[in-house]
Amino acid sequence: MFKILKYSFYDLARSRWSYIYFLFYLILALVLLFLNNDLSKAVITLMNVIIILVPLIGTIFGVMYYYNSREFTELLLAQPIKRSSIFLGQYLGIALSLSFSLLFGIGIPFVIYGLFNSGAIWDFSLLLLTGVFLTFIFVAIAFTISLNNENKIKGFGYAVLMWLFLAVIYDGIFLMSLVIFEDYPLDKLSLLGTMLNPIDLSRTLILLKLDISALLGYTGAVFKQFFGRQLGLFTSIFVLCLWTVIPVLRILYKARSKDF
């Protein structure tokens, strides 16, 4: 598996898209810091970008990589390598290379601007952590969708729809249901709704760390109580792990029975 991972990673590490992605984050972070020397303010703005873009890029890269490397995958399948190793290796390769683009693209400017001497370092670390989680989650989902769709256009379409659903439509439904059921106690429902969507969960995690918790806490004790504690953080990370592991298990399951 590690050999496959290594080659997928090198393959991507030299792809110009990885560099474009890396440069995009580098420039974004530099511009943000240049315009506004306040590290913690820049973290908030970055969050808005990361929450939407990381899943989108992860989805598109995942789908594209899968379809573009189909023949290569077939070449590997004829080698004495376990199927699970091939797909897991490719998945980790792409997820890691995207994560590195993100980490270095954003990390370097922040370090230059004195991140290590700043109080924002924990918020920043959390931002990167959720960014990496989102990458792993959405690449895994994209792989699952690709594995289930022979047709490239279809696979691509479903993957983008999935992103659109989790990034936008879900929140619309969430909002509607909160408004419709406003006469009932909503703290549990809103907590659940947040937990079920990795994008919402990441956003909430960062917002709470960025001390907007007072705005959220206004809605009721349950939310604040939950996210304000260690338990809340661990539960959130656990849910993010689930969001990663379940699609990966789907990949492994599907890969075992798929014909090439």
């Binding site: 080659y7 393959d11 991507l12 573009n68």
Partner: peptide, 11 residues
């Protein structure tokens, strides 16, 4: 020897 040889284009 597979029928269609298509390799990772970056390699």
């Amino acid at each position: 020897l597979p029928q269609i040889a298509n390799f990772p284009s970056n390699l």
